[in-house]
Amino acid sequence: MIKVSTNTVSEGLIPAEKIARVQLADGQIEEVSVSVKDIADDKLIASEIGRREGKVLVELPRESASGRWRVWVNEKAVTAGA
């Protein structure tokens, strides 16, 4: 598992959920509603699928607001371990 930096982490619709906003490699912001257990130190716990040219293909814990499961983020936004 990896940790992905977030722009913001806010309260979800219920106490068991948080809303994380992640900046993608192309600058877009992706929002995903996740379990509170998927957030650690304001970072999103996710899975790395692959790397290419300074970017990491990340699988989110749940489908994002725009319907994506996998997104490209900059390597700098990713740290190892969870």
């Binding site: 806010s10 912001i29 509603s33």
Partner: peptide, 12 residues
């Protein structure tokens, strides 16, 4: 939902 910057959380 396909609009750039769409926030379901804010909407809901």
């Amino acid at each position: 939902p396909a609009a750039p910057g769409y926030s379901y959380n804010e909407f809901v």
